[in-house]
Design a protein around this nucleic acid. Sequence first.
DNA 1: CCTTATTTGTTCGTATGTATT
DNA 2: CAATACATACGAACAAATAAG
Lengths: 103, 103
Amino acid sequence: MVDIPEGYGPDDELDPEAADPLYLQLAAVLISRIANGTYPMGRAVPGVDRLMQEFGIARGTARKTLVLLAEMGHVRTVVGKGSFVIERETGEPPASGSDVTVD
Amino acid sequence: MVDIPEGYGPDDELDPEAADPLYLQLAAVLISRIANGTYPMGRAVPGVDRLMQEFGIARGTARKTLVLLAEMGHVRTVVGKGSFVIERETGEPPASGSDVTVD
DNA sequence: CCTTATTTGTTCGTATGTATT
DNA sequence: CAATACATACGAACAAATAAG
């Protein structure tokens, strides 16, 4: 199991000095943004390359976070496409039309 | 130089309590499997991540073993591809043309 | 069909910090 | 203090799936 640290808001920058490892800090930020609606259901969260650029982290760290989010059920990752939000914490129902079909 | 400990067969699990360090125990197991034919010539031995999973060890330890095997001439490691068996202990001669270039 | 670009997946190489023995 | 081992993080290269043309 994993404990997502608290205290990392959607706009937080990561702190390499903090006790929490970067990939957990980043997971907290992304989960916050998903709950936020910044990344709506069915849409993709930033991919590995974008996370590297926007947070100034290495590829392995960014990927580790996305793998963790997938394991936690927040996103579903599709090779060659991206990681798509499959859960929302805003209370809004999934409406209809999630054109995500993989298996 | 290194002394590969004996008594660690191809199916052995590693023993953190043993006198021999884990990376030497693991080297013994892999060398045994190479001699065995479990990892045939030209094919890759398990990489760092696989060794971590299968033997429950840390990255540094797994890598240390692969570096040792490469130094001993059992495998040739290629970045982004894997560590490939370049010797067999089954009695078959190396034929000719071992394109192994180590420094 | 093939080429190119994008994106995720995999693997090795290296470094740092911490803990244990 | 040195050796071993673990966790984290950065970097580089290669591989495979996808999409667009």
